Computed example of a mutant assay.
Amino acid sequence: FEHSSGTSVRKRTHVSRKANMRIKSILHMAALVAIQSNKEITEFYDRKIKQGKAKMNVINAIRNKLIHRVFACVRDNRKYEYIYTNALA
């Protein structure tokens, strides 16, 4: 959330106090482990850092990637496959 009045932004953005901090911390740890152990995520992280992105912004993007992958597996009722081949292709 941002603190703003009209066109002026007064303070930095912050996370809502209603956020589930336990889930957020688990996602943060999962993102850090993914950066260390998953080649694809590591390459993404390094590429974004070289582009000048802030480290926390890149970690947030990785968290988002992990969430999307988990929900895709739940939606399709299947296990995660590192090398995915589309059944329609």
Results as ranks from 00 to 15, higher is better:
I26G: 00
F71V: 11
F71E: 10
A19Q: 07
Y45A: 11
H28D: 05
I49W: 01
K50H: 08
I49P: 10
R17L: 07
V33A: 03
I83F: 15
S16A: 03
L66H: 03
N38K: 12
N77Q: 12
A87S: 14
M56R: 13
R10Y: 09
R22M: 06
N64T: 13
E43F: 11
H68Y: 15
N64H: 14
M56H: 09
D76A: 14
R10D: 04
V33Q: 02
V74P: 01
C73W: 12
T85C: 08
T13M: 08
G52D: 02
E43A: 14
T85P: 04
Q51R: 09
T42F: 15
S5Y: 15
V9H: 02
I62W: 01
K11W: 05
G52F: 00
K18I: 06
C73H: 04
R47K: 14
K79D: 03
N57Q: 09
K65A: 02
R78D: 05
N86Y: 09
H28Q: 07
V15Q: 09
K48E: 04
M29H: 00
F1R: 11
R69S: 10
Q36C: 08
H28K: 06
S8H: 09
N64K: 14
M21L: 13
R17G: 13
L27C: 00
A89L: 06
F44E: 03
K24Y: 02
T85R: 10
N38S: 08
I59T: 05
F71K: 12
I23T: 06
A54E: 06
A19L: 06
R22G: 06
N77V: 08
E40P: 08
V74Q: 05
Y80N: 00
K55Q: 10
R75H: 13
R78T: 03
I49N: 13
K53Y: 05
I83K: 10
Y84R: 04
A34L: 00
V9C: 02
R75N: 11
S16E: 02
I62Y: 00
H3M: 12
R12V: 05
H3G: 05
D76S: 08
